[in-house]
Design a protein around this nucleic acid. Sequence first.
DNA 1: GAGGGGTTAAGGAAAAGTGTTTAAATTTGC
DNA 2: GCAAATTTAAACACTTTTCCTTAACCCCTC
Lengths: 134, 134
Amino acid sequence: MKQGLLTDRQKEVLRYRKKGLTQQQIAEIIHTSKANVCTIEKAALENIARARETLEFLYTLDAVHLCTLESGLDLLKAPEFIYAEAEKQGLKVKYDTISLINRLRDANPERFRGRQVREDVEIYINKDGDLYFG
Amino acid sequence: MKQGLLTDRQKEVLRYRKKGLTQQQIAEIIHTSKANVCTIEKAALENIARARETLEFLYTLDAVHLCTLESGLDLLKAPEFIYAEAEKQGLKVKYDTISLINRLRDANPERFRGRQVREDVEIYINKDGDLYFG
DNA sequence: GAGGGGTTAAGGAAAAGTGTTTAAATTTGC
DNA sequence: GCAAATTTAAACACTTTTCCTTAACCCCTC
């Protein structure tokens, strides 16, 4: 059966990093270049992000599309819009205005610039009022 | 930046399965064989398992070795032993006796036979009192 | 035993991921 | 500003995954 996403090399680097070693020190220990250690560490962190995203997807399986935040929208107007759409479907959003804005930005920081939506964001909702973004 | 672990094909199949379609029905919709749908679904589930395992590893990064359950030990005596070791380190185990035994067996069924430990089991603990086995 | 749902095995072609090096940025801490 | 630490890019060999087909097999239920 399959192992986790991280290679032995990646785990090795993460463990040493956790102990506080620099990439240079690790490079010496595992006999390679510090650039390579950097690449491996970066790949490890990407793999961890991928693992998180994969499990996030499972939640969206239970969720249905609620609406789209279109590029250019003022982020501060998003909650009101989302609440309205949810009400149309008889669903209650689990988050208050502030939490909602934070969740939006935390989930996809690169999709926002200041108060503005830079790129369309799809909003999904499940029966519990949990929101997911895609 | 990387996407999640699941390919578009895998997500597609999981969505249809969630809706209750059979592999045969999905095969017709996406124009392939049912054997292929089965393979894709299986790969998807493996990827999800890998994602879970990957995040599990992160916890072990924070954990320290607590003790070893040696081969031959009575499984029913393990919790008491583990509690004692945790107390030595000023840590409180998060699980009660029953949960702990279940967690042990669920994590590594092949390491136990009846009430007996067949093979040494390393116990790790983090600051939250979560336990991990290796 | 036939039919439906699911699984497995073998094999192949295309795509994606990994570890590595070298060299060039970029960031960070005095 | 210097030096150390970190990051990035490009390229290469190598391994693994994916998707696909075909054909067979298992477990039900009727």
